[in-house]
Amino acid sequence: MSEQPTSDSTTDGLAPDEQRRAVRRRYAQIASESSSCCSDSGATPTEELTRQLGYSEDEETAVVDGANLGLGCGNPNALAALQSGETVLDLGSGAGFDCFLAAREVGDTGHVIGVDMTPAMIEKARDNVTKNDVRNVEFRLGEIEQLPVADETVDVIISNCVINLSPDKQQVFHEAYRVLRPGGRLAISDVVLTAELPADVHADPESVASCVAGASPIVDVERMLSNAGFEAIQIESDEASEEFISEWDAERDVSEYVVSATIEATKPV
């Protein structure tokens, strides 16, 4: 693997508002066309891609078509060890695939909240609530830097390849800490930076919106989580993710710069 990038390697790029517009624009298109967030290879994720991301056949078939858009870089539910009755929050919930899987785990006494900043995605996810006939899932429009969730009301936060899209990741982790109950936990799949990105990638809206240019080095993610107050921080990269990340960009092999990782942390009791 290439040498770890320095901590200031992601500072030069799009202005925050421009970055949010690029992300919102791309995901509105995904919601309307059902194309993958990180590649344009097809309308629905293949079975092979779903397995590469860590989902079982049972998980794939448990949710009706239209919720799994192939948007992630892992399976946060596999990390979360969800329990019956827990309240789960999904940051950047898309069409709701991970939310519906979480709903199965927490049961009728549990509750799942999905937050997404793209109105078209929220509309699609809410339609999928009816299609999946679930009663313990809701979707809220909002930005993950300013969560529409009350203080200390969530047991577990999951997220799948979304936090890298934020122009203010430190604020995202502060918000996550705020809404978690004491003892609550993060279980996140995301991409992290493993090598310096070419200068032109930082200022490319498509690269920012496709889970590449916004990635941070592991050391930076650890620092931001610690600054927010989290403990028991564990971040592990998944070298096998090169297989699908290499297909995200037709012009360059972005697996030379980013890798999927699992990110776990706990709010102190």
Rank of each mutant, 00 (worst) to 15 (best):
A203F: 13
V88P: 00
R20Q: 08
Q171K: 14
I163G: 02
F100L: 13
S226C: 07
E145W: 00
Q146T: 05
L91R: 00
D8R: 11
E231R: 08
N77A: 07
L147S: 02
S189N: 06
I144E: 01
G66M: 06
C38L: 02
R178W: 12
E138P: 03
E105T: 08
V137M: 11
V219I: 13
E18V: 03
P45E: 07
A31F: 11
A199C: 12
A22V: 03
S207A: 14
I157P: 07
E152L: 09
M121Q: 07
F173K: 04
I113H: 07
G94D: 07
D8Q: 14
F97T: 04
G229T: 00
T61P: 15
L53K: 05
S93I: 02
D168R: 01
A232M: 07
A240I: 09
N132M: 13
E264F: 07
A31K: 02
E152K: 10
S9I: 02
E222I: 03
T109L: 13
V208M: 10
Q171W: 09
I263A: 05
L91I: 09
A209I: 06
M121G: 04
V208A: 12
A95F: 01
G96V: 04
G142E: 03
S246F: 14
C211F: 05
D90P: 10
P268W: 11
N136E: 08
I235G: 07
I144K: 02
A203D: 15
A150V: 13
T87D: 09
L225Q: 00
I157M: 05
V219A: 12
A120W: 09
V115H: 02
E206M: 15
N136H: 03
V172P: 00
V258Q: 06
V221K: 00
Q170V: 09
N68C: 11
G13P: 03
L225H: 02
F139I: 08
A215C: 11
R252Y: 07
T118V: 14
D98I: 05
A261R: 00
N227W: 11
S34E: 15
D12P: 10
Y27Q: 08
D17Q: 13
G110E: 01
A67C: 12
A22D: 05
E138N: 09
Q83R: 15
E143D: 10
A28E: 11
A250T: 14
Q52E: 15
P198K: 10
C38E: 06
C211E: 10
P182Q: 13
D238M: 06
A199T: 15
P5I: 04
I233T: 02
L186W: 06
E247W: 06
P119V: 08
Y27L: 09
S93P: 09
D204T: 09
T11Q: 14
A81E: 15
L147D: 04
G94I: 03
I233Y: 10
D116I: 00
A195L: 09
T87V: 13
G85P: 04
S166R: 05
F230P: 01
S39Q: 08
Q4A: 14
V221H: 05
Q170A: 10
L193R: 07
P167W: 01
V269C: 15
D58W: 15
D108F: 01
T61E: 15
S7T: 14
E33I: 10
T61W: 15
L141A: 02
Q4M: 12
S207F: 10
R104H: 11
A31N: 12
R126S: 11
A265W: 02
I163C: 02
